[in-house]
Amino acid sequence: MLTSAVMFVAPLLLTVQAPEPGPTIRVTVDSSRKEVVVTAGPFTIAHMPANMDHGKMHGMAGTTTPLLRFEWPMEAWFRGFDIEVTDAKGGALGSQLVHHLNIMNFDRRQLLYPAVERMVAAGSETGNVSIPKTIGMPMEPGYRLAMYAAWNNLGDADIEGAWLTVRLAWSPKNLAPRPRTILPIYMDVNYNRVTDSYDLPAGRSSKSYEFTMPLTGRVLAIGGHVHDYAEFVSLEEVESGKTIIMLKVKTDPSGLLLNMPRKYYGVRGDGLKLTRGRKYRVRADYNNITGKMIPSGAMGLLAGAFAPDKLADWPVLNPENPDIEADIAMLEKIGKPSGEGEMDHEHMDHD
């Protein structure tokens, strides 16, 4: 069996070129740091008002990147990510310019929703994510991935020539002892193919979504995503009413979002058990102190690492399923103003 050092004697370079003036996406493998580095750009990041409707962003120039397709290059265990935004000269612009970023795996299905896997779902409050080497998400060479980012430029002017870099940490396939297999779990109070945001009424409000677990497994780590004026996101057992996950949001005195905590249930134990056939409720509570309704001003989701008891029970992706087809069609439209043509398919070069 080849070691990772032997496998990557020379850097692996994949380049995806869209027609001018579209962005370029480049994928390199840094074997010394054990990272797959995805770099895309250049982008013009449009200035936008606060509390902009993020559903409309996906069809407006300069507010969302197009869907950027690439392939995962090797067999490995995915175990974390970091996001950087730089200017044309390489100077740091700050990851807070990314309102949210998703990376999709078109070769695996989500657990709870009939949609392709969201292997990374990060918000501006997420920060870098790194999980222990004792766990990992199995990845195969040739997995068809894609990413997009929604921008959050609240400055006074557009930003020209920006570059987005996402570093995807991995462990080698032959790591011993073998890591425990995890896959992403995604729980949203307002799951929608176009946008998960919803109107935020004045004052206190609560929104929730109930689901039945299709299999048994354990949550090892969990984070979330919300907007300003959020108080918490939680997960409850419907029958008992017991709250089993509680992420309390840190805000400033005016209610603006500062931080969203993460919890790790698998560090000193087996993790938080979710049971097949049992009903659960994901819930997001807000306190909008502005006195006015904020259009598309709220989101509420939990996303994390889930270890299924039986990997074979994971739902299989059926590309001919109408819901899956609709999900992919929606993703293809992201970042394209009305009437814009499709991006060309990627081509790959190996150095």
Rank of each mutant, 00 (worst) to 15 (best):
S31N: 12
D313G: 02
L168K: 01
A298V: 14
M48C: 00
S130H: 13
E75W: 07
S31A: 14
G161T: 10
V238D: 01
D351E: 13
D323E: 14
T181C: 01
V226I: 10
A121D: 11
S32G: 02
A157D: 12
A329E: 10
H350F: 14
K336S: 08
P21Y: 08
Y265V: 03
F43S: 02
S205L: 08
E236L: 15
D196L: 06
T251C: 06
L301R: 01
A284I: 09
P141R: 05
M74F: 12
G62P: 13
E20Q: 13
S206E: 14
W170N: 01
D156T: 12
M343L: 14
Y143A: 08
F211M: 09
M137G: 00
G271T: 07
R281C: 02
P184R: 01
Y265D: 04
L317S: 06
G55K: 10
E75M: 07
G300A: 09
T3S: 15
E84C: 04
E71A: 02
L311K: 08
E239S: 13
V189Q: 04
L93Q: 12
F81R: 10
P295E: 03
E125H: 13
I244K: 10
P23S: 04
L164A: 01
E231V: 11
K173I: 00
Y286F: 15
S130F: 14
P308D: 00
A115M: 11
E20V: 07
D82C: 05
T290M: 03
Q17M: 08
D87R: 12
L183E: 03
D252S: 02
S31I: 00
L317Q: 05
A149P: 08
H99G: 03
P23L: 06
L12N: 02
D199R: 11
K292L: 05
M187A: 05
L272E: 03
H100E: 02
P23R: 07
E160K: 13
E231K: 15
P201I: 15
E210V: 15
A76G: 11
F8D: 06
